[in-house]
């Protein structure tokens, strides 16, 4: 049932009471330090894009890697939040943090609605059901007025954080995005290492056993689905503030495919894998933009190679090498 191949070994098992292992603490701190100086080395907007997608992939990974559920419709949450946040900032004139919250809330509600239906099915059916719902959301976004159809919502103002700090400057915005996404990733980490995460794992490994132990499996699945949708929404809402726009791209099914690819490439079920995967894919899209249609082909090839030869993903391989959960 579980997607990770060596589900038997306990490589990502961390006792919930132990707090954060030193290794993870060090990695998070190094990562944070690196991200602090990053905007002065590369183009800040690009770095922000990577961070938004890293959070998106991490949220997706919560569902796939830890919940064992493959959703092919996560763009629905990402995109809906992006639209709502853009609308909130532009039309309602909300400050960035409130706009992001509004978007995230919308994604959570949508996650609840779709999740309630989708968790009735498993495996491949689950994937197709989420895909179909995401497609409905896509058509909705295309046809309703407030999304601006294929033009999307353009020129979203960057606004003042808490009504005080102007985010016009790329660097100021960068640190806002850093705080949101890094906080989000840490929170997701916390969830997976909580008792709740342990139950999820039990369900993933052996659903029948979890049921016989008295767990309401569907309720756990729904909860993890909603959490994943919420954080995907947080990523999408943040992205709309960075690019000052929300568009159909964010809700299209190819976006759902991309986030699967990021997670798969980085290593599903790992902590840092989705972050690595997102960084690799976004960088690739950025630098291969001149190759036009070949980007799609290259993504496809990566997909195929990851599935055939490289199922543990980049971080998964490293993690096995060092015999440490990463």
């Amino acid at each position: 049932m579980a997607l990770t191949e060596n589900q038997g070994d306990e490589r990502i098992h961390v006792p919930p009471s132990a707090g954060m292992p030193v290794l993870h603490k060090v990695i998070f701190l190094v990562l944070l330090a690196f991200l602090m100086v990053l905007p002065f080395m590369v183009y800040p907007v690009f770095a922000m894009k990577v961070m938004c997608f890293a959070l998106f992939a991490a949220a997706f990974n919560l569902l796939l890697g830890f919940g064992g559920l493959l959703s092919f419709g996560h763009a629905a949450f990402f995109g809906t939040a992006s639209y709502v946040a853009a609308h909130a900032a532009k039309v309602w004139g909300l400050t960035p943090e409130l706009a992001v919250l509004a978007g995230t809330g919308a994604a959570a509600l949508l996650g609840l609605a779709i999740g309630a239906l989708a968790v009735r099915r498993q495996g491949i059916y689950f994937a197709m059901v989420t895909l179909a719902f995401a497609q409905m959301v896509y058509f909705f976004a295309l046809q309703t007025e407030f999304t601006g159809g294929e033009d999307g919502i353009q020129s979203v103002p960057r606004g003042d954080l808490f009504g005080l700090i102007s985010l016009q400057d790329n660097i100021a915005l960068y640190f806002f995005v850093l705080a949101v996404t890094f906080g989000g990733v840490l929170f997701l980490y916390r969830i997976t290492h909580s008792p709740f995460g342990q139950v999820l794992k039990a369900i993933r490994e052996n659903e029948a056993r979890a049921i016989s132990l008295g767990y309401n499996v569907n309720r756990y699945k729904l909860l993890v689905f909603v959490l994943s949708a919420t954080f995907a929404g947080l990523a999408g809402a943040t992205k709309s503030q960075v690019f000052q726009l929300a568009s159909l791209t964010d809700v299209h099914w190819s976006m759902s495919g991309e986030v699967v690819l990021m997670t798969l490439l980085g290593g599903m079920g790992t902590i840092f894998g989705p972050l690595v995967g997102a960084a690799v894919i976004v960088t690739m899209q950025n630098y291969l933009a001149t190759f036009g249609a070949w980007v799609t082909v290259i993504q496809g090839v990566i997909f195929v190679l990851s599935v055939l030869l490289f199922r543990e993903g980049i971080v998964g391989v490293i993690s096995r090498r060092f015999k440490r959960p990463l």
Partner: peptide, 26 residues
């Protein structure tokens, strides 16, 4: 992939679809 979870088959064919469509588009 037969000995693995069926979802891998879905992922593989998704990748194949991207490649085939991309090539024809090119």
């Amino acid at each position: 992939l037969y000995h693995l979870d069926h979802l891998y088959g879905l992922l593989l064919t998704f990748g194949l679809a991207l490649i085939i469509q991309g090539l024809f588009r090119n």
